[in-house]
Simulated assay, not measured.
Amino acid sequence: MTDELVLYTNPMSRGRIARWMLEEIGVPYRTEILHFGTTMKGDAYKAVNPMGKVPAVKHGKHVVTECAAICAYLADAFPEAGLAPPTEQRADYYRWLFFAAGPLEASVSNRVLGFEVPKERERMIGYGTYQDVMDVLEKAVRTSAYIAGNTFTAADVYVGSHLGYGLQFGTIEKRPAFEQYFGRLTLRDAYQRANEKDNAAAAELQKAG
């Protein structure tokens, strides 16, 4: 596919996940940096994403929002990058993409906000408990080199990003298995390129005030 790719982002946001994924697929893309509370909430960008949040990726006439969806879409749109398993081998790939988008993000967010699910209500919430989520995720990253087996996929971009942010900001427990898994991911050239670009963009924003 030759349609232009555009990344709408801010370097201090989940847009870093989409940037990493774009660097993994290795095709040219254009970056639009948006500002919280101003251009991100303006009419021009709301025509792209009515939520007024980043990231979003525009590919020709198609717009994709939500980081897990962006990772899955780009893996399918650019199969030559090899970031999605063959269809018949996608069970674990889909499982962990959506585990991170659902139970992991919800449990971590609620914990940060100080919300603890009452013991008698744990069956009513999709993730049960924060501890359950951490234990399940730890077992997954200890089982194989990557989240869906022995090959790196788009699911590692998404799950790894959650773990990286959580370890950095203290919202996810610093278990050795988490640190070892994320450490492997940070050695990837695409991760390092993405990080350098976002760090440079963040420095420019700070300089501009």
Rank of each mutant, 00 (worst) to 15 (best):
E105F: 10
K46L: 13
V27L: 11
D43F: 00
F78Y: 15
P50A: 04
G37F: 03
T9D: 10
P11E: 04
P79N: 05
T129N: 11
K174A: 14
L104T: 13
G126D: 12
T151G: 08
V6M: 00
K46D: 09
V133Y: 05
L205H: 08
P103H: 03
R30T: 12
H35N: 06
K58P: 05
W20Y: 15
H162T: 05
A145I: 01
K174Y: 00
Y165S: 07
G102N: 08
T143G: 01
E80D: 15
K119N: 09
A68Y: 03
Y181S: 06
L205F: 03
V112C: 02
A91M: 11
G160M: 01
V54K: 00
R111W: 07
P85E: 07
F178T: 05
Y130N: 03
Y127T: 04
L137C: 10
A106P: 00
F152R: 04
V54C: 01
T38L: 00
M40N: 03
R19C: 01
K61C: 00
Y8F: 10
T171I: 02
I147P: 07
A100M: 13
Y146P: 09
E122S: 08
E23Q: 08
L113Q: 15
Q206G: 15
R142M: 14
S107N: 04
V159D: 11
G126S: 14
